[in-house]
Design a protein around this nucleic acid. Structure first.
Lengths: 223, 223
DNA sequence: TTTTAAATAATAGTATTACTATCATAAATA
DNA sequence: TATTTATGATAGTAATACTATTATTTAAAA
């Protein structure tokens, strides 16, 4: 038996559901590759179309513009990550153990999940580190928010916030701490690789260092 | 007597020093206004030239491209902020009081500093919240770093890190904590105004809430 | 004061980007 | 079989991100 995980996406993000056709799946697959390779600024629908072997117009039938495509794949990642979170902490009763597991999940490079055919999660994780904040750092964040584009991110943040509260129901900033560690996990990773003097991590560039830092930060805060 | 603060800038960021001419000062002044109004993505040298009353070519004589201009004004801000930090914590001996003062400085909307003629720091602060991370979240961060473009940011981070160490010489992550609170100060501000459910701040949208959160985070961490 | 250099203004031009529109064809569905 | 639906191929447009050229003004050096 072959299991397939389907992340439920906001239908207004795309003009038609990319999961439902080969072309659509290729758009997602090659977008992840190209954004990862050249960065979001250099990414164009023309280059994407060439990589897939279709035309620019073909891509525009799926996504209105490249920003919505970025928001789509990022939302997909947050949705997938929340699924992983629920799955991986399922049988853990102790909230502290659970929260530690969550931090590992947030700060580790994921392996490509074979249950999701056309999506390479390890590349997506890299995109989140380098491009993630560009999804919301726009002048139209308000409208995007009204369209619920950030719901998967908020849901994940909420889920983490709830585990924080399980650890210490009196802690005053569960959501702010959750969003801070989610963002910090990515940012410290980016800094470790690109601007290491902004961190205290050694040249090994092992992610365990980020995990240790976040554990220290979180458990002293909520203790 | 009229005092003027001059922030020393990396000369390779601009083709000629914008502080040395009216046109140059206008480029900085109107860039800050326009980026703030329409966001960095919608900002173009053509619109900037129109706003100033010069031509596109005129702007290109000062800056190679809009990214370098962004890095310039952001570097200027970090340089100015480090100056503020040194100035405002000058006579404070107790490192804890000093660190608290730093957190206030990082998380508060600055007032326009009359000592810096053509730069409106309160607008710059807004730009840092919304566009700050775009300065380094690029594929060419490595080359930019080699050119020392991020030195003012690193210097500030170091200065904050040193105060953290004064509070607790045994704390293991002074730089990572410094970069985390600097970024978190901006990010929580952005979330408070645009995606409030990612925070625990009430509708008053007062910055004291962010300060309280950061104080809680920092002093529990280093205590 | 004159000469010379440097900065600016005015204009034009190019490749690329971010789309929109049209029409033909192939594949799926009723 | 008729008909909707998705794709392919091609064209076209306004805006962006520049580069180049030439004339004019301003400032510094001789």
């Amino acid at each position: 038996m072959r299991l397939e995980v389907q992340i439920k996406m906001n239908p207004t993000l795309s003009l038609r559901d990319p999961e439902q056709s080969e072309l659509g799946k290729n758009i997602i697959k090659f977008s992840i590759q190209l954004i990862n390779q050249n960065g979001f600024e250099a990414f164009t629908f023309k280059k994407l179309a060439e990589a897939i072997g279709t035309t620019e117009a073909g891509v525009y039938r799926y996504f209105e513009n490249k920003h919505k495509l970025l928001v789509y794949i990022i939302s997909w990642y947050w949705g997938w990550l929340e699924f992983q979170l629920i799955f991986q902490t399922k049988n853990i009763k102790d909230p502290v153990t659970k929260l530690k597991q969550v931090i590992v999940l947030l700060a580790s490079t994921v392996e490509d999940d074979i249950m999701t055919g056309h999506v390479d999660e390890s590349l997506l994780h890299q995109i989140l580190i380098s491009e993630g904040s560009k999804a919301y750092l726009t002048k139209h964040v308000g409208e995007d928010n009204k369209q619920q584009y950030f719901k998967p991110y908020k849901d994940l943040c909420n889920a983490v916030g709830e585990i924080i509260l399980e650890c210490n129901p009196a802690y005053k900033y569960p959501h702010s701490l959750a969003s801070t560690i989610i963002e910090s996990a990515h940012l410290q990773n980016f800094f470790m690789h690109n601007l290491p003097s902004l961190t205290d991590f050694n040249k090994s560039k092992k992610e365990t260092q980020i995990i240790n830092f976040l554990n220290d930060l979180v458990f002293k805060s909520i203790r």
